[in-house]
């Protein structure tokens, strides 16, 4: 129960960092959840994120077990509202203003400028998660294998993550 205010603070803060996708917030998420509040260990956080890749819908629903572990089912609900609420309100407001912004010359500059930064944030999040999940040849081979297959063929990524589970089970 005592964790609720912290959960609200942390997840509404993380919410605003998800520029270009949930992964953008991952390095900060690791610091907040693992290092500062110790709700999870780093491997647990990575496991939740990864299992979340096999869930349907928005791909950051892994925050729910974080809230549940920290403060029970109420924590899970609080975390969802804190994480999706701020960006939902922002998107709602900007969505209504968008027509008026159309002629604003800086709009496209902002879109063009944020594009490389969000790719960079995604890559930085990837390196953070790789530090805790690539340990040797076998795990590196799985990662590279998934990368190659996805760049080469049109296949549902959730299936490949499931494939990773099978390979891990059989070989690790």
């Amino acid at each position: 129960m005592t964790q609720i205010p912290d959960l609200i603070r942390v997840f509404s803060y993380l919410s605003l960092l998800t520029v270009g996708g949930g992964m953008a917030a991952f390095p900060e998420m690791k610091i907040q959840i693992v290092d500062i509040h110790r709700w999870l260990t780093f491997p647990q956080l990575i496991h939740f994120y990864s299992v979340g890749q096999m869930a349907p819908g928005p791909n950051m629903m892994m925050i729910i077990p974080v809230g549940d572990w920290a403060a029970g089912p109420l924590g899970a609900v609080v975390v969802v509202i804190a994480f999706f609420g701020p960006t939902a309100l922002l998107t709602f407001a900007i969505g209504r203003l968008w027509k008026h912004l159309e002629s604003w010359p800086w709009r496209q500059s902002i879109q063009r400028g944020l594009a490389p930064v969000s790719v960079g944030l995604l890559l930085a999040g990837c390196f953070t998660i790789a530090k805790g999940s690539i340990f040797g040849v076998a795990t590196a081979a799985i990662a590279v294998g998934v990368l190659m297959i996805l760049l080469q063929y049109k296949i549902n990524p959730a299936l490949l993550v499931l494939g990773g589970a099978v390979v891990g089970y059989l070989s690790l």
Partner: peptide, 11 residues
């Protein structure tokens, strides 16, 4: 889970 995490990095 180790396999899933590694696959996620590739993804």
């Amino acid at each position: 889970l180790k396999g899933i995490a590694a696959a996620s990095v590739g993804l």
